[in-house]
């Protein structure tokens, strides 16, 4: 049991704080599936305010997980966001860690019984 607990702590520590935050995990998930996504789509899908979304995007961009491109479509400004390779890798690692954690916790619950 103590070994399991150590494993659990080790896994928890390996979670990336930048990716683990719920909204940022959502942003990376959408970008991974959509590849190139417009700012408005992220805002609407994740139900975030523009300011809040911008903050999360800045954090992700500073970490090199996404790329932001600003442009125009007619007269309207559009911001397109894409996930980088590092972003894809970080998302995969996060989801894999969460799955392992879930498996470990379930196993410990069964051992308790």
């Amino acid at each position: 049991m103590s070994n399991d607990l150590e494993g659990l702590h080790g896994l928890t520590a390996s979670l990336d704080d930048i990716v683990h935050q719920k909204n940022r995990l959502g942003i990376l998930t959408i970008l991974h599936e959509g590849r190139t996504v417009e700012f408005g789509y992220l805002k609407e899908t994740l139900n975030l305010t523009a300011g809040n979304l911008s903050q999360h995007l800045s954090v992700l961009e500073d970490s090199g997980l996404i790329k932001i491109e600003k442009g125009y479509e007619g007269r309207r400004g559009k911001t397109w966001i894409t996930i980088t390779r590092a972003g894809t890798k970080a998302l995969r690692a996060e989801v894999a860690t969460l799955r392992t954690l879930l498996g470990l916790i379930t196993m410990m619950e069964q051992l308790k019984k």
Binding site: L25, G26, T29, E33, T45, V95, L98, I105
Partner: peptide, 18 residues
């Protein structure tokens, strides 16, 4: 358990939607 499962469920739902 529920919290991790719910996060993974949300990720899956988002993927399907996009």
């Amino acid at each position: 358990d529920a919290s991790i499962e719910s996060v993974l469920g949300d990720v899956e739902l988002l993927r399907t939607r996009v």
